[in-house]
Every structure is written in structure tokens, then in C-alpha cells.
Amino acid sequence: MAEGIDVYKRRYGQNPKSLWRDLKGTVEPFYVTLRNMFKKPVTYQYPEEKRTPYPRYRARIVLTRDPEGGERCVACYLCSAACPVDCISMQSSEDENGRRYAAWFRINFSRCIYCGLCAEACPTLAIQMTPFYEFSGRDPLKMVYEKEDLLIADGGKDNEYNFYKHAGIGVANPRGGNEDEYGPVDVRSNLP
């Protein structure tokens, strides 16, 4: 018992205020919790009460189109590389204009964790997250979305951007025809 008192001495001897602080620290939380008990809960009662997510909320993924209505996706595989759960797969291909596009593009939403890394990785702003979150199903195969299901007729968050107007390979405009380019070089020019 003497030892016990020593402990209290050691602990509170130097600063008697500590004991007060400890007691207060034990009692005060009871007030805090009691006070919270009478506040309105923050819970949304989901099916009855729906919340409006922010525009940048990360839910269902879509593929957007450029201002001219072309598919923005160039099937560069960066989203599938970024995807931590490997839920995106695709096959790139080339159309007759030399435009690279996805011959097929598939997102397995039953695997997707909506982390948004794909949208972050996308260099052409094609893949974007939408706030549409009421999205579930019982059949895993029905949660596998193909390109046709993913494409929307809109540019999404940046309507003006067209990758091919900056890429400099002559798909949206003729070669050297973008505003930040000189026309194609002529090797046979007489000018030095």
C-alpha cells in the first residue's frame, strides 16, 4: 500500500493539477456523449431518403465522346493498367482514318471498386466517373458492361477537349494541321 501511495506521489506529487485534469478527463466525456445523444443523427435513411452526391462523386463509369461526337477512348490500356482489381479489359484497333479505338471495351462492375484510378489515368478524358451510384445486380454477368453500354453521347466533365487535336498524328485534322503545329516538312525543299 505504501508503494501504491508512492505511485500516486510520483504521478501527482509534482503537479497537483494533474489529478484534477485526470478526474475532469474522466467525467467530462460523459457529458459529451450525453449531449450527443440528443442531437439529430447524421444518418440518411437510404431507400426513403436519397442524398445528392457531388458532381465529382465516384460511381458508375462511362465512356465519353469528343465535341465532334467521336469516341474519345483510344484504347491505350492505361486504365486497365491502373486498375487495381483488373476489372477493365479491351482490345485496341485502328479504323480506316488511322484513329485508334477500342474494338471492344469491357468493365466488370462486379469487380470494380470505384477507386477512380482509371479516370485519373485516362489521357484523353474518355473514361469518367459519374455520380450515379444506385447500381447493383444479382447476376455477375449482367454487371459486365461492354463498350456499347458504357458509351454516352456527351463529353462529360470537359466537353471541349479533343485529344486528336493535340496529338499531332493527323487524325482529327490533317497532319500538321493542329493549331500548335507547323505544316509537314518537305525534305526536298530548296530552302536550307
Binding site: V187, R188, S189, N190, L191, P192
Partner: peptide, 16 residues
Amino acid sequence: ATFYDKIYRQPVGKRV
């Protein structure tokens, strides 16, 4: 031919 500028790979006038 394309290296030397005194060899003309495009039509020129009578005097260059």
C-alpha cells in the same frame, strides 16, 4: 541530293 542546298530538288528559275 537532299543534303546539299546547291542541288535543287524542286524546280527553280533560270538563275538561282
